[in-house]
Simulated scan of single mutants.
Amino acid sequence: MAEILSQQQIDEMLQQLMAGNVDIENIEKEKSKKIKEYDFRSPKRFTREQLKLLNSIFDNFAWLFCLQVSSLLRVSCEMEIVAIEEQQFHEYNNALNDSVLVGNFSLLKGQHGEDKPLLVEISREISFSMIDRLLGGSGYGYNVQRDYTEIEIAILEYLFKQMANMIRNAWQNYVEVVSELIGIETNARLLQTVSPDETVAIIIFDMVLNNDLTGKMSICIPAETLESVFKVFKLKHTRQNKNISNTVDDSKRDHIFGALKTSDLVLSAYLGKTEITLKDLLNLQVGDIITLNTQIKEDPVMIEIEDVPWYQGKLGISKKNYAIKISKVLKK
């Protein structure tokens, strides 16, 4: 329920407003709630945990890619993830220029079912600088406004093939995947490996070459591809947790049982039982004989541990002491 102001509070507020001590715009901003729009026509398909997993996987990929580029081009390379977004493929495709450099990869080829697509796009500045370095140049001839030639694509194909191995190595700590380069596309409007309405995960990287050249790389993974990978990962993770749980339970059981082995227990052997009246009990004297309900040669002796029957045995003598030889185990 809203708070009702007294007349005195109302007068004080009016005085502050007249004096200019209160900023109405700030009050409105504080009252306004931040509302995040949600489109129910295209609900989110990736959970926060899955996006965190992608961030961890492709952070490892960025590290592997920088090592490969630094050794191949002999220049410093820095790369970091700046965003992981979920959108439809036509939105991603429309944001690309007409002339692009996109590597088309297959994921899970021949191991966990049918091939699933994965796209890697490298910005024009970075790609032309790589070509210049691979041809022996300084790497500064990247300001080129033209399409890629067949020779330049053939040169970059080697790097994309190396990238396929990096993708596989980045995933190997989580799930085994097989990645292979299918082809290189330079026209964004001809990318038809993914349906326009398909939900995709976009991983965007910032790249810095030779400490001064900046550019971007983006990886586009369709939801169908990720669902296949996450399904395999979930099964593997569940099995590992189950195995770890069983191992922990066995370890705890052995530890508890080892501690119990040193516990002292009361072991009792009963030759037999009988019933007598209270009168007979009061009249018992030294030398009286009490007849039991068992026979020494025929009926076994009951052995109890903490008042629980565990064994049966036969009465005998061992080293001049009465002893019982166990003939039957009742509990295990």
Rank of each mutant, 00 (worst) to 15 (best):
D206Y: 06
R239N: 01
D212A: 14
F205C: 03
L209K: 04
T238P: 01
N210I: 05
L235E: 11
T214P: 10
H237R: 15
T238C: 01
E227A: 05
V208A: 13
L209I: 07
N211S: 09
F233C: 09
S218N: 08
K236N: 02
S228K: 13
A223P: 01
L209T: 07
F230A: 05
N211D: 07
T225K: 03
T238I: 12
I221N: 06
K242N: 13
C220H: 07
I221L: 04
C220K: 07
K236A: 08
H237S: 14
F230L: 05
C220R: 01
K234I: 04
K234Q: 10
K234V: 00
L209M: 08
P222W: 02
K242C: 04
Q240Y: 13
L226V: 02
N210K: 08
F230Y: 04
N211H: 04
K234L: 12
K216A: 03
S228Q: 11
Q240H: 09
F205L: 00
N210R: 10
K236E: 10
N241K: 15
E224W: 00
C220M: 08
C220L: 03
L226P: 13
I219K: 02
K216E: 10
A223H: 06
K242V: 12
D206W: 02
S218F: 00
N241Y: 11
N210Y: 04
I219A: 05
I221T: 02
H237I: 10
S228R: 10
K234M: 04
K216M: 13
R239K: 12
F205Q: 04
T225D: 07
C220G: 00
K216G: 06
P222M: 06
S218K: 11
F230V: 05
A223G: 11
G215K: 05
N241R: 15
S228P: 07
S228G: 07
I219L: 05
D206I: 11
D206E: 15
M207F: 14
N211E: 13
N211L: 08
M217K: 12
N210G: 05
T214I: 15
V232Q: 08
L226E: 03
F233A: 12
F233T: 03
D206A: 13
T214C: 12
K242G: 08
K231C: 11
V232T: 07
E227C: 02
N210M: 11
F205T: 02
V208R: 14
V232P: 03
S218D: 06
T225L: 10
K236W: 07
T225F: 10
V229S: 08
D212G: 12
T214N: 15
F205R: 08
K242H: 13
E227K: 09
F230T: 00
E227P: 09
L213V: 02
V229G: 00
A223N: 12
V232F: 01
F233W: 01
N210L: 12
N241G: 11
I219Q: 01
D206G: 11
L226C: 09
K236G: 05
K234A: 01
M207G: 05
I219N: 02
E224G: 12
K234C: 01
M217L: 12
L213I: 11
S228C: 09
H237D: 15
K234E: 08
T238V: 02
I221S: 06
V229F: 05
H237V: 11
L209W: 09
L213W: 06
M217P: 10
L235G: 06
T225A: 10
C220S: 10
L209C: 02
E224N: 11
M217C: 14
G215I: 00
M207K: 02
N241M: 15
E227N: 03
S218Q: 13
N211K: 10
